[in-house]
Design a protein around this nucleic acid. Structure first.
Lengths: 120, 120, 120, 120
DNA sequence: GTGGTCTAGACCACA
DNA sequence: GTGGTCTAGACCACA
């Protein structure tokens, strides 16, 4: 379910957070479904349990999961999560637009970049 | 000319690199114009000369400036730099598009995000 | 494995880069094998960690290794590296050939120089 | 006669030394001919007289010129200079051959590199 | 004065 | 423990 790309420049915990966000937002992990336990997942991925812990803490902070002491972590999907994630993406896009504007790239070209991506 | 944002999560040297890229790509710094000296800029920004050194080394590696020992650093603008920077931005946009696609955000919405940014 | 020659005029970090390039290109260090950690190697060679850091950053930039935060640096050998290194050597040879041509040394003599080296 | 390339990575004094070596070895500057004065050349090239001084000192050290106090610098060409320069080039070639050998490039390929250069 | 290299050592994020 | 960034400051080559 989760595959870590060690050649990815992003930290491992971030890759895990991203992956679970996708699984939850796309409905592959359903509300109240149990998340894999920290230890199991750490074993499965051969990584440090601390790293999973950090990823889960971040997912909880963002409202994607909730922890029940002694029982584990569970999916906490609700309608607002998608909105949050969208806002995040929106903010990233606008940051790049600004970067482009600062060196004089017209917005039309950015639209083209998006269209290009579709074909690849 | 250069302002460091200590709230920015990016390292200082990277902020400096970005800022000079803009100044050069926008033509504010002209070809063969002398860059501020490592020591002077370090003093002006109250940061360590090594940090400026690192930023300048990166700019040189990317082809934005060239160093002449004992004389200083100079702007090395050439036509391909803008193309390179565009390719970089294009790649970032497509990465985000993919991220959006993975959670089911239609591309039309991304276009809207771009349009929004224009008004702000 | 790595020996620094203090009589060498080249900077230390460059000697380290060269040495690791050799070890990787000759296959002595295999793909995905872990590099010695920055601190360990610094201790072993009795030089400053920053210098190793600089060498590793350069090796990463050239595509010889990749860094994973919190885990270490790993060999990233790929087929193109040898080609790149060859192109570098080719360029050096042609530079010297030109130097020789400028003072009227016939190319045949240069071939002899190469042959001489074989016996030494 | 002398043109400095500020985009050349080599130091200016070295470019000057190289250029005069060529002029002398090719016989364009004849034995006992007077060299341009340090000040004149510095003015002409718009560079620091110290730099010319350093270049001339190096040329003298290598036996290419000799200084007469109060009169100037003069060309000291003799048969051994060409031999010296050849030995220098020979040494550079053999260094590169060794570098190539260390990563397993067969000597035949180096011969090809030389041949290639001829056509370009 | 100008850039480049290096040391010594701190502090942070990540695993 | 591991890499990455940064400071403070020295020393060298070059102009």
């Amino acid at each position: 379910m989760i595959i870590i790309d060690y050649k990815d420049t992003r930290p491992i915990y971030e890759q895990i957070v991203d992956k679970f966000q996708q699984l939850i937002l796309r409905g592959i992990l359903k509300t109240d479904e149990q998340m894999p336990s920290v230890r199991m997942l750490a074993m499965e991925l051969s990584i440090n349990p601390n790293t999973i812990q950090k990823a889960y803490a971040e997912l909880e902070r963002q409202g994607f999961i909730y922890a029940v002491k002694g029982r584990g972590n569970f999916v906490a999907y609700n309608d607002k999560l998608l909105e949050k994630k969208k806002a995040e993406i929106r903010s990233k896009i606008q940051y790049i637009c600004q970067e482009a504007a600062e060196i004089g790239i017209p917005r039309e070209e950015l639209f083209d970049f998006m269209a290009d991506g579709r074909k690849e």
